[in-house]
Write a protein that binds this DNA or RNA. Structure first.
Lengths: 227, 227
DNA sequence: CCCGTCACAATATGATCAAATTTCGGACTG
DNA sequence: CAGTCCGAAATTTGATCATATTGTGACGGG
């Protein structure tokens, strides 16, 4: 919330000078992706201008962008909310994720360096820790970071973009599942992925990725059906 | 409860019920998709406010949305333009289109009614006419409409959304290809698709769709390489 | 050739208008 | 007499615009 005023102060850090609408977008995107906003929860422009302390134009732009991303939906007349996934939605997401992300894994296999793989392994170890601790937020962030890091090495920006879009769609619902079942039931095929990466076996990497996705998503599907 | 009220005030566009930012989005989207804006061409906010006769807020929102769609790109410093596809871009688009759109075709096969198929055939006949006439704009619109109509019967909004996004990306470049080579060299696997639909052979429909996509996209790839 | 100044375009805010939902009051019915 | 239903006013929210501010790039002078 203080991210608006510090334009002048942290100009020396070299990181700043992002426009406000970009910051609002990043903030909201993170809140949605990691489930700080509950599915079905309404989102109002004026509420956000108030809570974020910026004018309405940047908020409007960020919301439009997130709607286009599928991270927010246009609920009837002039009302937006975090989407609630139906069973058919989840089923489509499973197909799309497996298609796109398996390919990203496959492409990354030939490109990653051994040190990249080490970095992934480190991420996975921290991920295991969050699972052991029951740290849902940490799990969501690190799980995403693991996949994001892997896919970043595929050198395929368009496919990457599609994958990001898919993650934005199921992020909020994944949080709900974790909140209900805890982290212990979560699947983790990451060790298979890492081993296959070391072996430079692209098909095995793709297969492990597909399994990781399928298990996680079907868990989500079951939980949503139950609700 | 929704009585139709005629807004006689808006004389410029002639119709009135959608918000302005939505109209701006649709207009720009259409111009980009059907190649009325050339790839690489810069797009300015003020230019659009002037030419479209609306304030800048709606224009800004529309542009953000189109950037998120991948239909426009953020060229460095506060400048946006229609994207120019590289070879690796096209190659990724081929993969994604075949993955997603083949599945849409597959799903549509079980759902389409005979009259739906007749409608598709009618579209395809009009499409042939545009090819014979060398009518590039008509070809682009009808070709898109053919696929859109087919996919609409797949009852898979999320996959549909992904497909639309992909079309937005290659639309402008497709126009360039047609402008260079004319319409006669364009592939048309639509008759295979229609025949397979009538036979209710989902795999054959998917295969024909994949071939239609691959031929068209590779033609585009060649043309871009040549340039 | 470098630096300062000027101009233009984009960003951001607040005000204003329109629409919709909600709430409150009254009337009608059981 | 009480409960419910309908309608109008009020509040809340969204949409648009006009305007001020800021940053960037270009042009000209030193």
């Amino acid at each position: 919330m203080d991210l608006i005023k510090n334009n002048a102060s942290d100009a020396k850090t070299g990181e700043g000078k992002k426009p406000a609408h970009e910051q609002v977008y990043q903030t909201l995107r993170s809140q949605i992706m990691y489930g700080e906003l509950v599915p079905g929860q309404p989102v109002t422009i004026q509420g956000l201008t108030d809570s974020l302390g910026v004018g309405m134009t940047p908020v409007r732009e960020a919301i439009r962008r997130l709607i286009s991303d599928g991270a927010l939906v246009f609920q009837g007349n002039r009302r937006v909310s975090v989407p609630l996934l139906s069973n058919t939605d989840v089923e489509q997401l499973i197909f799309a994720r497996i298609s796109i992300e398996s390919e990203l894994s496959r492409r990354a296999t030939a490109i990653v360096t051994p040190s990249d793989i080490d970095q992934l392994e480190q991420l996975d170890q921290r991920l295991d820790q969050t699972i052991a601790d029951g740290d849902v937020s940490g799990y969501l962030r690190l799980n995403h970071q693991f996949h994001e890091t892997l896919y970043a090495h595929a050198d395929a920006p368009i496919l990457n973009d599609l994958a990001e879009r898919l993650w934005l769609r199921f992020g909020p619902s994944l949080r709900v599942v974790c909140g209900r079942f805890g982290t212990h039931s979560l699947p983790d095929r990451h060790k298979d992925i890492i081993a296959a990466l070391r072996a430079r076996d692209a098909e095995r990497v793709a297969k492990a990725t597909a399994q990781d996705i399928e298990q996680g998503m079907e868990l989500m599907s079951d939980a949503l059906t139950d609700a």
